[in-house]
Design a protein around this nucleic acid. Structure first.
Lengths: 217, 217
DNA sequence: TGTACATCAGTGAACGCGCGTTCACTGATGTAC
DNA sequence: TGTACATCAGTGAACGCGCGTTCACTGATGTAC
């Protein structure tokens, strides 16, 4: 890659970073303007078109960027888990929530744009999330307790786990960094929720056919 | 209420309905302009100020409006469940999803603005959702299987159920009305997920202290 | 290696447009006597 | 009941502003010989 190409990539990255920064205070992607992005990035508005056709194209690039670094994180966790020979739920959840706060811009983007105002970006985010679900369902096959569940059920459980984790992310990002007490309580609840799901999974086959829950007094 | 007041309320409702209609195609609340709303409602832009200080105030009114009609629906379901003496998970989930599709504008608003671009509206939506969680946790006390769980755990489970249901809502609204097959599959998965949560809840106390899940090969 | 030309990332002026908000207004409805 | 005045929901013109996009440009970097 030539020096010119390198500087072009650098500017491109600056535009992506500028967008995430502008969204940091809770603004949605669609409400960030092309001119704001270039202003934040320190280039003239027309320079934008050297990199993206419009804001939607930048949004799709952002989805790629963000989900790439998330996949990297998950791969490392997976390697660690294999090394340890088991998954420690509590520490996994804690690690995850710390990572969310550390990479808050990226998670805020994903969480917000999952249901966000740009249809194209929204679809791209949902596609990536579905990918994460499939990956997790595959990981479940390594768990002895889950090995004998049908693929459908593994997907169903993975979907529940991923969506629940996205929820935690949204909630922890809504807390200020000095609300330590609330952050702790959220973490504890998150651990319990994941544990509950796994308890449900462990007892799944036996009760699958039951269709009624409880009888009121 | 005088005839003038009545017509004022009518116009106000027209503005609220116009906003929901404009958001129908997947647009976020913040991207809907004051002028668009008045245009859709058939009044002049300045008439807006007779009803709301700005769009955020209209947004908060919309949250009230929407959560009021949701609460009404839930109250009716609750009465039915008490009458029947039990909760049938499958039919409850099916009813819920049908209701989501029937009241799609309202649910789309809630689901989108839960993490949406207007901080004030977002906080109001999250407050309402927290309210739903508390209500559901109270309902759980009527279930014999759950009566002996501490309040904390009931809240934790209610939170998981509500957030999961919001997820279903978002997903079913993303499907076109002719994607019947996908809607059916989503419904089946939803029933299973709720059942899994309840299975987890039934076996909760016993395993609460466990901290490790599985052992890899 | 040195030169002449091509490429192209970023510039800067200009445009038309929809926006939120102000202001003075109109005329139907409500109120006091 | 009839009249005179007050209220106020909705009107219409006007404003300044930031927006996305166009265009012709500049000058540093890359390429061919």
């Amino acid at each position: 890659m030539s020096a010119r190409d390198e500087r072009k990539q650098q500017t491109r990255q600056t535009l992506l970073d500028a967008t995430l920064k502008l969204m940091q205070e809770g603004r949605g992607f669609v409400s960030v303007s092309l001119r704001e992005v270039t202003r934040e990035a320190g280039v003239v508005p027309t320079a934008f078109y050297r990199h993206f056709r419009d804001m939607d194209e930048l949004g799709l690039a952002l989805v790629d960027d963000v989900s790439l670094s998330l996949r990297k994180m998950l791969r490392e966790e997976r390697v660690k888990a294999k090394g340890a020979g088991h998954i420690a739920l509590q520490s996994s959840v804690m690690m995850f929530l710390l990572y969310v706060r550390q990479e808050s811009q990226k998670f805020e983007f994903l969480v917000r744009e999952r249901m966000g105002g740009s249809p194209k970006v929204r679809e791209a985010v949902q596609r990536e999330i579905r990918h994460f679900v499939t990956d997790l369902a595959n990981d479940f096959r390594l768990f002895p307790e889950m090995q004998n569940l049908p693929s459908d059920d593994l997907e169903m459980i993975a979907d529940l786990v991923i969506n629940t984790a996205i929820n935690w992310s949204g909630e922890i990002l809504a807390l200020a960094s000095d609300q330590v007490r609330l952050q702790y309580e959220l973490s504890m609840r998150a651990v319990k929720q994941l544990r509950l799901i796994f308890v449900g999974a462990r007892h799944w086959k036996v009760t699958e056919a039951a269709g009624v829950m409880g009888t009121a007094a």
